[in-house]
């Protein structure tokens, strides 16, 4: 009896020590935020969409304020050029210069894919911080793409979170999320985000190339390339108004 108790006690101690080696999920999420978060951002990016008949590259510039507001202007290809999108809270407006129309994208339309990519407008609009939506727990360590990572399991705090759980691989050194899997309630893998290229910019580690894939359908996914980003930029308020869509 005593022998068992000792073995048992030892095991407990070891596992407690092991667990103690893992940082808290919340802390890691906090560090991620410190790296990438900023109040204002201006970015220039490319989105490469693979269709069944070839790929398209959409170029855009975005002005982002916090989580609630963003303004995007499309630059290329020519058909898309000068189309603008404005997100204000949970409303998404788009302006089409060829028709001079300001259109509200709502409800059902938000579930449609953006430009034929693997993302929906809803995915694009996702604004709440992971910290707010999920309980995070470190469940292990793994190498990803040559980088040592913490593996975190995120479980939704509330019922109305779109993806019930996620798994993220966070670079231990740089606190950049390198891979993210999003799961349905039943546990099926729905979407996967993989970061292909991380660079140091403006004192931060920035993912420059991201592959976003809908795991349920065939296809290679949609690639994002971040060309340029300014943090804590000065963005005048009028940009985030419907009027600016038409300028």
């Amino acid at each position: 009896m005593k022998k068992h108790a000792r073995t048992y006690g030892l095991a407990l101690l070891i596992s407690a020590l092991a667990e103690a080696q893992y940082p808290s999920g919340d802390w890691i999420l906090q560090k991620i935020d410190e790296n990438i978060g900023s109040d204002n951002k201006i970015s220039h990016s490319l989105m490469i969409i693979q269709g069944r008949r070839g790929s398209r590259t959409v170029e855009s510039r975005s002005w982002i304020q916090g989580d609630e507001k963003s303004f995007t202007e499309y630059l290329a290809p020519p058909r898309e050029a000068e189309t603008k999108m404005l997100k204000l809270g949970d409303q998404l407006w788009t302006y089409s210069p060829s028709t001079d129309r300001t259109i509200l994208i709502s409800g059902h339309m938000l579930r449609q894919s953006v430009m034929g990519s693997d993302l929906s407008y809803e995915d694009l609009m996702e604004d709440r911080k992971l910290k707010q939506m999920y309980d995070a727990r470190v469940v292990g360590e793994e190498d990803y793409d040559g980088r040592a990572c913490w593996v975190l399991e995120l479980t939704a705090r509330a019922d109305n979170v779109a993806y019930h759980s996620r798994k993220i691989w966070v670079d231990k050194e740089r606190f950049v999320s390198l891979k993210e899997d999003r799961f349905a309630k039943g546990g099926k893998l729905l979407k996967r985000t993989e970061v292909k290229d991380v660079q140091r910019m403006d004192g931060r580690w920035i993912p420059k190339k991201i592959l976003f894939k809908d795991m349920l359908k065939t296809g290679v996914g949609t690639e994002f390339i971040l060309n340029d980003v300014q943090f804590n930029a000065d963005i005048p308020d009028y940009i985030f108004t419907k009027a600016s869509l038409r300028r």
Binding site: N160, H164, L216
Partner: peptide, 16 residues
């Protein structure tokens, strides 16, 4: 075949 939907709260679910 995989079937996906959103439940009453808006969370995604998918099953075979």
């Amino acid at each position: 075949v995989i079937l996906r939907w959103r439940d009453a709260h808006g969370a995604f679910d998918a099953r075979d």
